[in-house]
Design a protein around this nucleic acid. Structure first.
Ligand SMILES: [Zn+2]
Ligand SMILES: [Zn+2]
Ligand SMILES: [Zn+2]
Ligand SMILES: [Zn+2]
Lengths: 162, 162
DNA sequence: CAATTAATGTAATGTTATAACATCGACCCA
DNA sequence: TGGGTCGATGTTATAACATTACATTAATTG
């Protein structure tokens, strides 16, 4: 998969999410295999839950879902899986929501630029190099050595404003 | 005060923070008076504590400080004051740190772009129109009606890398 | 098959934030 | 000046988010 500016678009009505989900899981499995890290049953299940839709998911909601077929799940169960998935770039954390969302392109590490619809809660992810580079150059000008960007944009998505 | 790109710079060694603090408080008082809102003793005290230095401050640290001369302070005491100060644009919330920092230019509402040093914890605030407008134009292109930006950049400040 | 390390289980606790209702105090207007 | 109104604060409890610490189990390696 080649790097793209719109990593995950706002989804249209006809979106085949079952397919979208299975693709993401297959791609994650492949990515982990290539890297020699273990996408265990538990981690895969959490990833599947995060990918349940295109909305950010909260840790304790994941915990509740997880408990449906994983009786002993506790907060560390979820947070450890999330830490792994974050580290491998399979999901992103949305700081302004304390929530997590699947990444459509874990091939190369990136921080992403998130468009969050405050009406329907859906999220699109950009990885726009112009934005990243403009910010990098502006911060460099004032002597700042940037190593991470958090960019979260709140508003109304095309579907909700249409 | 005219709008500036670097709202709050990284501070140099000789920085007269006492002066900086008093200016900010005076400016806040003036701004509130102009708007007809009440910068009460409590709110001013919280603002003073947030402006204690150029590092983000956590709500429960504020609470602890506040209790030194305000015996009955409880979480709502702090959070209500913070809500007021946020609404009036006198402080900003740093989402990635769950912390709060004074705004050097509350004259016009803005969201700010924060440079956060992960070594010394100091923060600089930009309000760079090029960044804001590039992001606005990119998001508009895909039909997103943006109404709020969260931009938080982590790295090493000039003082710490020098 | 032991030894080692990674992953998960389990209990407790720490940290951040809000809800709900009571009281107080500033301000306005008879 | 007294009473009404509304914004601000007090107070108690709890919700929501996250980590520590230590025990146990599973995978990997020699
Ligand atoms: Zn989908
Ligand atoms: Zn991504
Ligand atoms: Zn200062
Ligand atoms: Zn500001």
């Amino acid at each position: 998969m080649v790097s793209k500016t719109v990593v995950t678009a706002f989804q249209s009505a006809g979106h085949d999410h079952q397919r979208c989900l299975e693709d993401a899981l297959a791609y994650a499995a492949e990515t982990c295999a290539r890297r020699g890290v273990r996408l265990t049953r538990l981690r895969e299940q959490v990833l599947r839950l995060v990918w349940g839709n295109h909305e950010p998911v909260k840790a304790y909601d994941l915990l509740e879902s997880l408990r449906r077929d994983h009786e002993g799940a506790a907060p560390p169960t979820v947070y450890r899986a999330l830490d792994f998935l974050l580290k491998e770039g399979l999901i992103h954390r949305i700081e302004s929501l304390n929530a997590y969302i699947g990444c459509g392109d874990p091939s190369s590490p990136h921080t992403g630029q998130f468009l969050i619809c405050r009406k329907c809660n859906s999220v699109a992810e950009l990885n726009d190099p112009e934005i990243g580079e403009l910010i990098a150059s502006k911060t460099k000008q004032i002597g700042f050595k940037m190593d991470h960007q958090t960019i979260e944009l709140s508003g109304i998505c095309p579907k909700c404003s249409g």
